[in-house]
């Protein structure tokens, strides 16, 4: 089934958003971004109504995941804090779950455990109910992304992907996504942004970009397809031009199609939909600039894309008409499928 999504509404946000997800029942959207709070909205099928934000994070709020069966939110920040929240109450919290930037959180399918990864090179597994640390693995350099099924698959800055058995504390498989890495002058360019299992975990997707240059990166959004049984790369999909940069978020719709958002040079970026059996996208929407997050509602009929306001860049001090130096923001685009 080839979906044709239509935008039905747009909502404002006060700051920039880097990741967003719906709760298990779809009643709430939560987002993290360039501020030390988690923003939340109530969703009634038509509109997003702001709820009180969760404060007490530091630096940037960087990662979030909802429990798959309960109204619990796991959220983290760039100083290493990890917190479990229900309504506005903190159920448990680790101020230094990682040393510094905690990059991603994934919940196990049954919701009993969560996994985290960070700039400190560690992958850690936590009891979702109590916050007790169950296991940790020194995974390599800065671990950019992870996904959790029965096991954990994670990937670092250099595109080294590994599946790790949590119970046996043992490596199961490695995958070579080093095309997502490049050293340019002093800069290590890590292109990995998202890991996702599809086809009942038979296929692992590693999405991001194939870096070409540092400083002001210009590169083409890329998705690598790996056979999880053999570890072999089976397909590479690139979409867009080298202005469009990175696949920043990637989810699978219940129909099977992949939904991705991209951002690169300010003003560029898009939403595109792809049949995993094909190499070309069957739908693309370029009306939104610099899209960083895609939250799919559990009903499969709605999703939200967060973009960045136009004219987000500029050298020197650009002021508003009132003479204020303002931050950029992330409009939230509500789509209906």
């Amino acid at each position: 089934m080839k979906l044709e999504p239509k935008q039905i509404a747009e909502f404002k946000s006060e700051r920039q958003i880097s990741a967003a997800r719906f709760s298990h029942d779809g009643s709430m959207l939560a987002a993290v971004g360039y501020e030390p709070v988690v923003r939340r909205w109530q969703f009634d099928g038509q509109a997003l109504t702001p709820l009180p934000s969760i404060e007490g994070f530091h630096g940037y709020s960087t990662a979030l995941a909802f429990h798959p069966k309960q109204p619990r939110l796991f959220a983290a920040d760039s100083w290493g804090q990890l917190r479990c929240i229900e309504d506005e109450k903190t159920l448990w919290q680790h101020e230094a779950a990682h040393d510094g930037w905690l990059r991603q959180i994934a919940a196990s399918p049954d919701g009993s455990r969560i996994a985290t990864c960070g700039k400190d090179g560690f992958v850690r597994v936590w009891d979702a109910a109590t916050g007790k640390k169950l296991a940790e693995h020194q995974a390599g350099e800065d671990v950019y992304a992870l996904t959790m099924t029965d096991s954990i698959t994670f990937g670092d800055m250099r595109g080294r992907l590994e599946t790790w058995d949590v119970d046996l504390k043992k490596k199961q498989r490695s995958f070579d996504a080093s095309v997502l890495y490049k050293l340019d002058r002093l800069q290590d360019l890590g292109g990995l942004r998202v890991l996702l299992h599809i086809d009942g975990s038979k296929t692992l997707l590693a999405a991001g970009t194939t870096p070409q240059n540092g400083a002001t990166p210009q590169s083409i959004p890329t998705i690598l397809f790996f056979d999880t049984a053999t570890g072999k790369l089976t397909k590479t999909v690139t979409h867009g031009t080298n202005k469009e940069g990175y696949v920043h978020d990637l989810v699978q719709h219940p129909s099977g199609c992949l939904m991705a958002v991209t951002a690169g040079t300010p003003g560029s970026g898009q939403l595109f939909l792809l049949d995993p059996a094909e190499k070309e996208a069957f739908h693309e929407n370029k009306k939104m600039a610099n899209c960083h997050a895609l939250a799919l509602h559990p009903d499969g009929k709605h999703f939200v894309v967060t973009s960045t306001n136009r004219d987000s860049n500029g050298n020197g001090k650009s002021l508003t008409k009132d003479g204020v130096y303002k931050t950029n923001t992330s409009p939230l685009h509500l789509f209906e499928v």
């Binding site: 003003g267 960045t308 860049n313 500029g314």
Partner: peptide, 16 residues
């Protein structure tokens, strides 16, 4: 570099 973060997650030029 600019305090403001652009849509490419970058900071631009800032002599101020």
């Amino acid at each position: 570099r600019t305090p403001r973060i652009n849509g490419h997650v970058g900071r631009d030029h800032w002599p101020e």
